[in-house]
């Protein structure tokens, strides 16, 4: 597979645990959208714990976190892994509203999931504020190359036409998964993080202070005044 990822500046690393470093930690709201069964939950689990498990269909939405260290900033991804099933579509706007990164996931071995991803794109664009969301088209299950129904060109073509980023991944083998998260981290930081009020700072609350934590509203994080 071609490497479609943007160049990664040196020194960037990804850890699954927070290190105590005197760098700023910024919150990034990321949402995974796509048809049922394309591997959104598996990708999310890879992002969060770098593990793989077969899961039953997601019910509603699952919330996971993942921390990515860039050279001069730490990003705490708050990942909303949505259910692909149609009955939950009415609540999905809750999760993509104000997202800094949106992943449109499809299964390269199922054409209809690619078409569905384009419908999700249309819906996202309705709510889209230019420059506020990094939209990434993700062709998952690239380990199923022999059953491929969506070519790399199709994916790239759509991405270029609509101004999206594009990557093919395999949550099964882990191929390109870390690279994808890192690339998203860079893009989000470059595009949104530098803006005034782009990303809010994450305060690690020790458990003792946990009572006072319920003051922020995650669903309006894009509108927060910057750090």
């Amino acid at each position: 597979m071609e490497d479609n990822l943007p160049a990664v500046p040196g020194g960037a690393q990804r850890h699954s645990v927070t290190l105590t470093r005197p760098v700023q930690t910024l919150r990034v709201k990321m949402v995974l959208l796509g048809s049922s069964g394309v591997g959104k939950s598996s990708l999310a689990l890879r992002f969060s714990k770098n593990e793989l498990r077969s899961t039953s269909p997601t019910v509603g939405c699952a919330y996971l976190t993942s921390v990515v260290h860039l050279s001069d900033v730490t990003l705490r991804f708050e990942i909303w892994d949505t259910a692909g099933q149609e009955k939950y579509h009415s609540v999905t706007p809750l999760y993509y509203r104000g997202a800094h990164a949106a992943l449109l996931v499809y299964d390269i071995s199922k054409r209809e999931t690619f078409i569905r991803a384009q419908l999700w794109l249309k819906e996202l664009e309705k709510q889209y504020i230019p420059g506020s969301t990094v939209i990434w088209l993700v062709g998952n299950k690239c380990d199923l190359d022999q059953d491929r129904q969506v070519s790399v060109q199709d994916g790239l073509g759509l991405a270029n036409e609509r101004g999206l980023f594009f990557t093919e991944t395999s949550a099964l083998s882990g191929d390109q998964v870390n690279e994808l998260l890192l690339a998203i981290a860079h893009r989000v930081y470059e595009c949104i993080g530098v803006q005034q009020g782009g990303l809010s700072e994450w305060q690690e609350m020790p458990l003792v202070n946990v009572h006072h934590r319920h003051t922020f509203n995650p669903f309006a994080s894009c509108c927060k005044v910057g750090p």
Partner: peptide, 18 residues
Amino acid sequence: NLVGSSSSFREGEGWTPI
């Protein structure tokens, strides 16, 4: 039944209309 049937709540926190 919902909790017992779905493994998806094991990964992270679930949030669902019911």
